[in-house]
Amino acid sequence: MQIFVKTLTGKTITLEVEPSDTIENVKAKIQDKEGIPPDQQRLIFAGKQLEDGRTLSDYNIQKESTSHLVLR
C-alpha cells in the first residue's frame, strides 16, 4: 500500500509499505529515499509519535494515510 510522509519543508514522500511493516522499516525506507538517518527521524501520526518496534497496523495507518516527519 502507499502512504505519504510530509516533511517540515512541505515536501511529500510517497512510500510503498505493508501494514505489517514496523516503524523502523518505514524509517529505513525514508533513509533510502531521502538520506536521513533513522535516528534523526521522528514520525508523527494523528498527533502521536510512532515508536520503532510497533507496526503501521498498530497505529491504524491505512493506505494513503499521511504522517509527518520531524527531524531531531
Rank of each mutant, 00 (worst) to 15 (best):
Q41S: 04
E34T: 15
Q49W: 14
I13T: 02
G47M: 03
N60Q: 08
D39A: 12
G53K: 11
E51H: 08
Q40G: 05
Y59M: 03
N60W: 04
E18M: 14
T9N: 14
Y59Q: 03
I3G: 00
E24S: 13
P37V: 05
T22C: 04
I23M: 03
L50A: 03
K48M: 14
T22P: 05
R72E: 15
E51I: 08
Q62V: 12
R72C: 15
V70D: 07
E51K: 08
I23R: 00
I13N: 00
L50H: 01
G47A: 04
E34G: 04
R42C: 15
Q2F: 12
R54I: 05
T22E: 03
I61N: 02
R42V: 15
L71W: 05
K27A: 01
Q41G: 03
L8P: 15
D52H: 06
S20C: 12
T12D: 04
G47C: 07
V5L: 05
M1S: 03
R72I: 15
T66R: 08
N60C: 07
P37M: 06
K27D: 00
D39E: 13
K48G: 06
T14M: 12
N25D: 12
E24C: 09
K48A: 10
K6F: 07
K6Q: 10
Q49H: 13
T14K: 09
E64M: 13
M1C: 05
H68F: 14
V5D: 01
G35A: 05
Q40Y: 08
N60E: 07
K11R: 11
D32H: 11
L56W: 03
L71T: 08
L56P: 01
L71F: 06
L69P: 03
D32V: 13
T22N: 04
H68C: 13
Q2L: 14
G10T: 03
T7R: 05
D32K: 13
K11Q: 08
T9P: 05
E34Y: 07
V26N: 00
N25L: 12
L69V: 07
T12C: 14
L15I: 11
Q41K: 01
E64H: 13
R72F: 15
L50Y: 01
E24Q: 12
G53W: 13
Q40P: 02
R54D: 05
L43R: 00
L8I: 13
K33N: 05
L8F: 13
V17I: 04
S57A: 14
A46N: 15
R54K: 13
M1K: 03
R42P: 01
G10I: 02
K33H: 09
D58G: 03
S65N: 09
R54F: 12
K27T: 02
T55I: 06
G47V: 02
V26K: 00
V5S: 00
G35Y: 03
Q40V: 10
F45Q: 04
A28Q: 13
L43W: 03
Q31L: 09
L50C: 05
I30R: 00
D32Y: 10
G47F: 04
S65M: 10
F45S: 04
E16H: 11
R54C: 10
